[in-house]
Amino acid sequence: MKCQYCEKPATFHITEITESTGSQVMHLCEEHAKGFLQKEEADPVASIASALAKQLDLGQTKKELEELDRKACPVCGISFFEFRNTGRLGCPFDYTHFAADLLPLMTNIHDSIQHVGKRPKKTAAADSQAVIIQLRREMEEAVEREDYERASEIRDELRRMEQAEEGMGDS
């Protein structure tokens, strides 16, 4: 038997039991088995896919999901489709932009939609941080199309914002 992830022989047979996927046996080579055992969480793509499948069962139509797939974050540009396929979000602002769409997913994964527990002593408005991320992206795009004038304008703007932030942190 070959390893599920490469051509080497599968010498390890790993059982994983989770609520969302039930009991599952994986056949892996030594290297992939060690990596798998050290990773503490279940495959996020699988758990997100299964949570979204449950949403379909719960009455969200295929058309609604297709529309959602096209929705994209204005800050980092990631589409919901891309997120769904990789299980990874693009930036912190996604939790604001896709908030309503993420709620059913959160309920499925965590059985909760509200953080309880530790909070950082200092936080910044998500919007101001999002602007920084967005400007940095715009600056890189300006450099790419060789619009150096625009790039340096953005750089100045970014500096101003970062200085303002430092000042706030000290006060």
Partner: peptide, 12 residues
Amino acid sequence: NSEFGYLTSCPT
């Protein structure tokens, strides 16, 4: 953010 806590690349 106060709703979702520490924001991570994967919602899990």
